[in-house]
């Protein structure tokens, strides 16, 4: 059996949000199904291979993000991999880099990889920080709800004809406030940290199925328990922290929070904004 390879792109530049965890989740879920799997960690000084099966591009700060984009644009290795059918998970800064253009540290437009139909601009709105809950769009509805934590200052606008990953039930997501992320071909772009595949095992398996086809079920007791707990408690935490809830999200959350009495997990006490060390 050939080895399935998961490339973790520039964790030293784009690893701010535990993004290596997404690569680990993908590799482990393959190994537990008796695939040979390897994580190929590509640091900033190394050449990006174009022959891996899956690519994980994570979040990072402004300067390293621009550096990573310049390197990927120069080598075109990720472009070649995508052209030959590789699957890509691009999170936060990774999503922005894969678009047509994104905002640099001073707000200037920087050329992106052009692999996702979106642009990202600096925003006058407060930074979007907090739990986010997403209902995947039509063809991805089988994934159930997606839970994550978003943390981004810039906002992403989809280009005409582009498809968001889903509808925002709590949180901010893309610029229009209703959609989250962008999916194109086998590239899944999202603002969800967590890491997103740790919280959403079904999304991990979707990406894997693009590469290896049908998958046997796994014992997902703990990942499923985390998914359910975050799906239930995340929107309430967002609301209490004074985060943004769109009108559709608010009505959904009201209905959903009513069910909290029967929850099987301990509810978090009220979070107050206080001085801290």
């Amino acid at each position: 059996m050939t080895t399935v390879s998961v490339a973790l792109i520039y964790p030293d530049l784009l690893g701010t949000y535990g993004d290596g965890g997404n690569a680990m989740v993908l590799a482990q879920r393959l190994r537990w199904r008796r695939y040979e799997a390897e994580v190929v960690t590509v640091t900033a000084g190394q050449a990006v291979p174009d022959s891996c099966d899956l690519y994980v591009v994570g979040g990072g700060e402004d300067l390293p993000q621009a550096l990573a984009a310049a390197r990927l644009l120069e080598s075109k290795a990720l472009h070649r991999a995508v052209a030959s059918g590789a699957a890509v998970l691009a999170v936060c800064a990774g999503l922005q880099i894969l678009g047509e253009a994104f905002a640099g540290a001073g707000g200037e437009a920087i050329e992106g990889l052009g692999l996702l139909p979106c642009v990202t601009r600096i925003s006058a709105r407060p930074r979007a920080i907090g739990e986010i809950l997403v209902r995947p769009a039509g063809r991805w509805s089988g994934l159930g709800l997606l839970t994550g934590f978003e943390n981004h200052g810039a906002l992403t606008t989809l280009l005409p004809g582009a498809a968001a990953a889903g509808h925002v039930l709590a949180g901010v997501g893309n610029e229009d406030g209703t959609g989250e992320g962008v999916v194109s071909g086998r590239i899944w772009g999202t603002y969800l940290h967590g890491p997103v595949l740790a919280r959403n095992p079904r999304l991990a398996d979707l990406l894997l199925s693009w590469v290896v086809g049908d998958l046997a079920p796994l014992d997902d007791a703990e990942p499923s328990a985390l998914h359910d707990e975050r799906t239930e408690n995340g929107p309430g935490e967002r609301r209490r922290a004074g985060g943004v809830l769109g009108a559709p999200a608010l009505s959904w959350a009201k209905g959903h929070l009513g069910k909290l009495a029967s929850q099987k997990f301990a509810k978090q006490p009220e979070v107050r904004q206080t001085e801290s060390g």
Binding site: G15, G20, G21, F149, V271
Partner: peptide, 14 residues
Amino acid sequence: ARTADGQDPSWLWD
């Protein structure tokens, strides 16, 4: 994962 801890525990994976 309270305010003083940072509300995003993604760092667990680091």
